[in-house]
């Protein structure tokens, strides 16, 4: 299933921006976009993510404590300095979301829920993340929804318990609204 999941990535060819990526990041752009803004369904954008968040996620993926087999395979054997270089590169890239397509009612439902769950206390009131907390604003909607569903239902080993506890009992419809609200932030 994962293979099918990632197959579309292979058809994307790294474009102009790739030239600026350090060698370590060359493999990333195939799926995550030449400029770190993903156009691949279920693959997150990395542009503008906090550097520490990217570092931590990549280290835990390498250690086999987080992520999927494709990412674990890619990170295997990577040195810490290479991980730092990848994180630094994507953290510095500008976020370029597609034009908004907000559903006002869904957006409001998501905004209210984000307030109730106090998402902003970690992810920042702009939802652009900070330090170890990922940026949620302008992230791909279907990725956010899928990721939150996994965190709610069966967080993998190595994932901290905070998100699991926060999303405990949140309905599928509410997760959809949250993902919509966050992805449509501009």
């Amino acid at each position: 299933m994962l293979i099918a999941f990632f197959a579309p990535c292979l058809s994307f060819v790294a474009a102009a921006q790739t030239a600026t990526a350090p060698p370590e990041a060359q493999a990333c752009v195939t799926c995550h976009g030449p400029d770190g803004n993903s156009v691949t369904p279920n693959v997150p954008s990395l542009a503008g993510q906090p550097r520490v968040y990217l570092e931590n996620t990549l280290v835990l993926t390498r250690e086999g404590l987080r992520g999927n087999p494709v990412m674990q395979g890619l990170m295997k054997g990577k040195k810490d300095v290479q991980i730092v270089a990848i994180a630094k590169h994507f953290a510095a890239l500008p976020v370029r979301p597609p034009a908004p397509t907000a559903d006002k009612a869904l957006q409001k439902r998501g905004r209210d829920l984000a307030g109730k769950l106090r998402c902003a206390s970690c992810h920042d009131k702009t939802f652009r993340g900070r330090e170890q907390m990922p940026r949620l604003a302008e992230q791909r909607e279907e990725f956010l929804e899928a990721r939150m569903t996994v965190m709610r239902d069966k967080p993998p080993p190595g994932t901290d318990t905070i998100m699991n506890a926060t999303l405990h009992g949140v309905s599928n419809e509410d997760l959809k609204a949250l993902a919509h609200f966050l992805s449509q932030l501009r």
């Binding site: 106090r118 999303l167 405990h168 009992g169």
Partner: peptide, 23 residues
């Protein structure tokens, strides 16, 4: 701080009705 085991034990239908807990 529901551990993975806890979340796994619930069906999604039950989860949908449970109150949200802060971390």
């Amino acid at each position: 701080a529901s551990a993975a085991a806890c979340a796994l034990a619930f069906s999604s239908a039950v989860l949908a009705q449970a109150p949200a807990a802060p971390p």
